[in-house]
Design a binder for these strands. Structure first.
Lengths: 217, 217
DNA sequence: CGCGCAATCCCACAAACGTGCGATCGGCAT
DNA sequence: ATGCCGATCGCACGTTTGTGGGATTGCGCG
């Protein structure tokens, strides 16, 4: 029995053969990991991974046929406990968010140096969510938007933002009014303006616009 | 002009004097950072930080008086470009997301070893969002919830989830009914059940419960 | 088989909400 | 000073929601 028995069992999904071979070589030559599968398409991965004993998958986004994101979605249904990490050159909002929503637990850019990549695999396996620096910041920023960026982004005045916060808590107009020490009529006027600014026609739409999870629904 | 001129200028907000002194010592003895302020309360930090030339702030959550989270909120108003990192023992959902929503760019647990802490300060200063492994996973999981876990988490039936999705889009009952090919009365009945299950009393509350950004509001 | 439960439909009433107006006041910029 | 804008208050009207009943169908589970 060699040390390989205790290594993290990794599979690759990457369409570029040289890159795939390089990653395989890197992983097999590390003390902590072993590559138990390397696939060039999502279809191939989906067909063969269920038969493998493995812990984590490194996934490219841009694949011929089934995209890496769709591949994650299906892999998660087949093997919910699998830890999947994106490894890609893309860092646009949509692809980051869609990958995470599909079930990726980590997101590394391909510029990541080899030693950091191996570290990330270990961290992923230990229950972490390794992300490249740029990705982590993007993720964190989505939480900050309602607090700091909403004003500039939505054009709401401070008072109007307070009103929307009341809406989000499910307060009635009269409750918002009491909370802010103003009359219900004023609340209604503010709402009138808020709806115009946000181009919505109901409290629910307004709240979603300001506090909704990006991409949800 | 010493090397200190190029170091990252850090301030501390931490109420425990020994811990504060230890951190100060750690930072001052690192080649990359220098501690330019150490405060025991949020009030003190808010009063003195505006007069300091600094890049980043390390913030404890539990402070006497103004909480660390409130302190972040106010600091961000005073100095929007400041990079703030939480340094705390708490890893509960509310405190993590309230901190991020308030404007924290990083979140480390106090168990972080000293060398990792210094690395994190550098990464923060370079535009990253260092998070302890546990924190990163919690953050990533919030994006996964709407895709996979919402059903189990809320106890809503598939049909009921469709209804809530309609609410989140701001649809009127009649629009939801048309969209799903059922009558308005049925929509109302479903809503009745949904409100009971989620313990809410309005569409806005229901939508926030299912689609709201965690910690927002 | 009966029981529970999701899903469907119906009614009536009260409360809350959205819309369109008009109006005053203070601050800030032109 | 003139004018714009945010914040405040008011009213009328129609629409939408929330609440509290009642009722049927079909499906799965013990």
């Amino acid at each position: 029995m060699t040390a390989a028995a205790n290594r993290i069992r990794v599979a690759l999904v990457e369409d570029d053969p040289p890159v795939r071979a390089g990653l395989r070589h890197l992983i097999d030559n590390s003390p902590s990991c072993v590559c138990v599968g390397a696939f060039g398409t999502g279809e191939e991965a989906l067909a063969k991974i269920p038969g493998l004993d493995l812990d984590t998958v490194l996934m490219d986004i841009q694949l011929p046929g089934v995209s890496g994101i769709e591949c994650i979605r299906r892999l998660r249904k087949l093997r919910p406990k699998l830890a999947i990490m994106m490894l890609t050159v893309f860092e646009d909002h949509d692809r980051i968010f869609q990958s995470l929503a599909a079930g990726a637990s980590g997101y590394l850019l391909k510029q990541t140096p080899p030693d950091k990549l191996l570290e990330a695999i270990v961290e992923l396996h230990r229950g972490g969510s390794p992300m490249s620096m740029q990705i982590a910041r993007r993720v964190v920023e989505t939480f900050q938007q309602p607090a700091s960026g909403a004003e500039a982004a939505t054009g709401l005045s401070p008072r109007e933002k307070e009103i929307v916060a009341g809406l989000a808590r499910g307060y009635l107009y009269k409750e918002i009014a009491a909370h802010l020490g103003i009359s219900v009529e004023t609340v209604r006027t503010h709402l009138h303006h808020i709806y115009e600014k946000l181009h919505v026609r109901s409290r629910t739409e307004a709240v979603m616009r300001v506090y909704g999870r990006p991409g949800a629904v």
